[in-house]
Each structure stands twice: as C-alpha cells, then as structure tokens.
Design a binder for these strands. Structure first.
Length: 531
RNA sequence: GGCCCGUUCGUCUAGCGGUUCAGGACAUCUCCCUUUCACGGAGAAGAUCACGGGUUCGAAUCCCGUACGGGUCACCA
C-alpha cells in the first residue's frame, strides 16, 4: 500500500493542487467496522454507531465489517453475540464482512485471533516502544492506594513512575530473562515518550491535541496473553485494512495512544471520527443500559433477558417500532441533511448521509420524537403489510383474526390514530369483538329512558339497508333524526356506545359497515337488553 | 482532581462573517375540519445564539478567557 501523507517532495508538490482529504479518500477503498464487545445487549447508542458506519460505507461504495471484541474473557455473556447479529439484521444494517458472514480476514472474533497479536507486541518491544512489566495486580493496587493516601487520586504507570516498578526498564537484563524463562506472569506495556504533543485530525472535531505527559503506559498484552483493546484494535484495523474508524466519543481520550501505536508500527493511521454521545432524557450523563425501562422507553433494539440476573429489558422491535423508523430516528440523533427533510428510508439515508455534518455535542434522546417517526412510517406501510403486523398482534392477544378484507378495513379505519401496530386493537377492540362494556361516564350523560326505544326503531330501519354501507346508514340515521325531531348529539353518541362501547373513534357508520348487518344489529339489541 | 471534548427555542437541530432582532421538526397552546377522538389544515407561544472580553465596517458564525455540561483516567471495552 502506498502511503500518501508522506513528506517526499512529490507529495508536497501534489498537495498544492489536490486537497489532502480528497487525496486520502480517493486513494483508499472505504472499509469501516463496527466492533462491539459481547458483554450484553447492544444498546441504541451502539446501534447508531453501527448505522453511521454502515451509511458511510455504503455511500462510498465501501465495506462495512463486524468484528467482535471479546478479549476480556471474564466479561463474556452468552447470547450477546447472537443478539448483536440479530439486532443489526433487524435494523437492516447487516455487515458485508465479519462475524456471522465471514470474509477474507477471518476470524473476526478477537479471541480467535489471539495468536496473531503476540508478534506485534514483540515487534514493539524489539523497537524499544514497549516493555515487560512484572508488577502483579496486587502490587499496582498497593501503589495506587499509597498514592491516593498521599493526595494523588490518580496514579499512573508512566515515564516517571515506571522507574520505580518491576519491569524490563528497571530490572537487570538477566533478571528479566530469568523471570521470562521461569514463566513468571507479566504484561507488555507501551513505552510512551515523556513529553510529546500528539496531534490528529478528527473528522468531526477537527484538530485534537494531547500531550503524552497526560497519557500512561497502557497494558498492550495482558497476563493471559490476550491483547487489550488498544493493541487489538490497532492491529486488527490495520490487518483488516480499515480506512476510517468511526466510534463513540468515549474513545477520544485514548485516540492519541492509538495514533502513537500506528506510528510505532510504521503504519499509516486510518481517519478518525468520534461520534457525540446519546444522553439520557432526564438528568445528566450518557444514556446507559440501565436507563431504559425506568424511563418508560426501550434502550435496546430487541427484547433482552440477562442470562446472569434474569433481568428483562424491552426492545424497540417488540414495542412495535418499524426497523426503518428506528434507523431514521437514530440517524437524526446527531446528524441531519441540512435541509428540512426528516423522513428517510435506509437507502435515502445512505444517499444523504454526511459524516462532516455530524453534530459535535451529545444528543438528548426524546422518546416522543421517536414515536412520531414510527407513526410516519406506519402510515406509509402497504395495507397488506400493516394487516399482517396487526394480525400477529391479535394472535398474541388471543383475539381471533378476522377475514383479510375486514382486517384491512379495520386497519385503514384506525390507521390515523395509531403509532404502533398494536394501537389498532388498543384503539378499536370493538372492530374485532363486541364491546365488553359501555363507558359508564358517557352512558350516564347520554343514555336516557327513551334511548332503547329509539335504537330499536333504528335497528328495524337499518335492517332494510342494502348494501349495508356507511353512506346509506348515515342518511337513514339522519332522516330518522329529522322525523323524530332530535339532534345528532342526542342519538349519535348513543348509537356509537351501542356499537363500540365508547364515544371516540372513527365514523360509527363506517364502523357498522365494516362489522356488517348481523353484528351491528346484534350490538344494538344487546345494549337495549342490558339497559 | 488531571486531561480531552462540547455549549443555538423544553427536546432534536438549521446556520459555516453581512439577504437571520435566527429557519424547521417533536412537544405545548389556539382556531378550522370532524355534531366524537385522531388525522389533516391554519396560527400562536417559545432562543437577548452559556457568559465576558477581543478581531472586524460588520459575529450565533473567528480568537481568548470564565462558567456550566459531558467523556476519560483498569491486566474493561
């Protein structure tokens, strides 16, 4: 691979004519990755990171990879990886390459790549950019405690303190050899320069600069031989030819370390983009896994039951969200196209997305807006698809699913007041079965001594209406009102109560038309008998 | 606490030096439509662009401070 950003005279001359960024973009095929850790359910912030990666890749005709970062074996949670795969699939942002789909750089699970990292750590040691450290966890804990007692709450293993620790920088070479040969446990730490400004250009934040004085000698290879995130992520991104690292802002503080590692390896670093965080709607802090159901909305794409605690968390899918609505909503938490458009299919998002227009500040999540997105998508759904979703909901409730034309009719009648598929039943149970009761409040207000009498006459008249459809029913009803000298407000609500049990909802005549003559007349008779 | 990042209506945001005493969406309120609810339509209210200094003929837009918020400081990612 030819590196572009170098300081040979050719490139300098070049840069006069070609902006650097364009230059980089055209020289490298876009390959991005989403690299979650399977420590539990993937939360919506993670899904958004995956989404942005996916959109960016697709827009540039590149590849979107999924890599599982499971180097911490103590945090393994069964089912988590499957959950991640399923969640991404549900959102429609499946990887082109990676865990679950395979590809030229397999394996994509870091635990299975374990043997590969060692040589890179050795390479760093050989070049003097890393060293062995024999301090036990207990040693470190002790040092930290002492430092804390002495007024330093944040002891770091760095260019100063490492001189007082047990490592290959302080121990005699023979001693190090002996310990290594004896199989004494050790870690490999990066050896950071003492006082150096590390600068890099973040795609979203511009130039970010940190002095190594504030960084520490992070562990690269752990005592169990596994790499830490810092080593694994840099090595894998290099091996997998990742062109852009798009990840959450929580990684920003360690980005300078990663930049340094690329430099130590002599590799060209990918371009970085650190995404703003998703903040909780109430109070302070980032949206966390624990915030979900407590605040009345899901934080996970799919329903999740923790295998350790048995704790159940609700998911957007089960809540009735449409995947494209969920993706649209998520995309707009931190990004927008710059005009006033808000509704985008996934394909349209791919078209419109622009990493440079991602907002810098964290976005506070608003469930009301999320519902609005779903409502918009629900209304745009083809009738048959909506009917299918509603049928599934009815089945879950143990309610008989009506004939297709009736089901679709019910859907179209209730669509305007539904945000989720299940709202069709919740707002109009009477379309699927006779009312289980009558709104007592409205009965008190509208039902009179003569109501039953009028309804029975109406029923007789309705019986003659053929076909039994809204228009004819309504004119029939109105002519009866005129003949009996009543206003709509007197009999209308009563008729509605008879048919639906409540006084709100779509046109009562449309409802009767859908229910059919037999059912409608039966309901009228029922309320009369009962009162 | 150190370091890093951020700060435009309640919320998500547009804005990238002048046509903006700041536009859209959600939420809120009013009216119309519907003799119901919702949808839809029209409108209202809502941001002295965190604050203070600069730079400039001119700043929400550039620079510097301050405040506030967030992130991060593990043999976790």
């Amino acid at each position: 691979m030819r590196s572009i950003g170098n300081k040979d005279s050719d490139c300098t001359r070049w840069a006069i004519f070609v902006p650097l960024k364009e230059n980089l973009m055209s020289s490298r095929p876009v390959r991005v990755r989403f690299a979650p850790s399977p420590t539990g359910a993937l939360h919506m912030g993670g899904v958004r990171t995956a989404l942005y990666n996916y959109l960016f890749a697709k827009q540039h005709g590149g590849k979107f990879l999924l890599r599982i970062e499971d180097t911490d074996q103590t945090r393994f949670v069964p089912g988590a990886e499957e959950y991640i795969l399923e969640a991404l699939a549900w959102c429609g942002i499946s990887p082109d390459e990676g865990q679950g789909v395979g590809g030229p750089h397999a394996p994509y699970r870091q635990s299975e790549r374990k043997p590969m990292y060692r040589q890179y750590a050795d390479q760093l040691i050989a070049a003097g950019n890393a060293y062995y450290a024999f301090d036990t966890p207990e040693d470190l804990e002790l040092v930290r405690e002492r430092a804390k007692a002495a007024g330093n709450p944040n002891w770091q293993y760095n260019s100063i303190t490492r001189t007082a620790m047990k490592n290959s920088m302080t121990l005699p070479a023979e001693d190090v050899e002996r310990r290594l040969a004896a199989g004494e446990p050790y870690v490999i730490r990066v050896k950071l320069p003492r006082n150096e400004e590390v600068k890099f250009q973040d795609r979203i934040r511009g130039w970010v600069s940190v002095n190594t004085l504030n960084l520490d000698d992070k562990v690269l290879l752990k005592g169990d031989g596994m790499p830490t995130y810092h080593l694994a992520n840099v090595v894998d991104d290099r091996l997998m030819e990742i062109s852009h690292v798009i990840r959450g802002e929580e990684w920003l503080p360690s980005a300078p370390l990663h930049i340094l590692l690329y430099r130590f390896f002599g590799w060209e670093a990918p371009e970085f983009a650190h995404l703003p965080l998703l903040l909780r709607p109430d109070g302070n802090g980032k949206l966390s896994k624990r915030d979900g159901d407590r605040l009345g909305f899901p934080v996970f794409p799919l329903h999740w039951v923790s295998p350790e605690t048995g704790e159940v968390s609700s998911g957007y899918r089960e809540r009735g969200f449409l995947p494209e609505a969920f993706a649209n909503m998520l995309a707009f938490l931190g990004w927008n196209p710059g005009d006033n458009r808000e509704l985008f299919s996934l394909a349209e998002l791919v078209e419109a997305f622009n990493l440079d227009k991602v907002h810098k500040a964290g976005a506070r999540f608003d469930f009301e807006k999320a519902k609005w997105f779903n409502q918009q998508f629900l209304r745009a759904l083809p009738a048959a698809e909506l009917a299918q979703k509603v049928a599934a909901d009815l089945t879950r409730r143990g309610v008989a699913v009506p004939a297709p034309h009736v089901l679709e009719g019910a859907c179209s009648l209730l669509l305007d007041r539904a945000v989720f598929p299940q709202d069709v039943y919740e707002n109009g149970p009477y379309l699927f079965h006779a009312p289980h009761g009558y709104d007592p409040d409205m009965m008190g207000k509208k039902w009179t001594d003569t109501s039953a009498e009028h309804l029975r006459v109406l029923a007789q008249r309705f019986a003659t209406v053929e076909p039994f459809a809204a228009e004819a029913l309504e004119s029939n009803f109105k002519s009866y009102l005129a003949e009996s000298g009543q206003g709509f407000g007197q009999l209308g609500p009563v008729l509605r109560l008879a048919i639906t049990g409540v006084t709100v909802g779509p046109s009562v005549f449309e409802t009767m038309g859908l229910l059919g003559k037999t059912e409608s007349l039966e309901r009228i008779e029922s309320i009369c008998r009962a009162h």
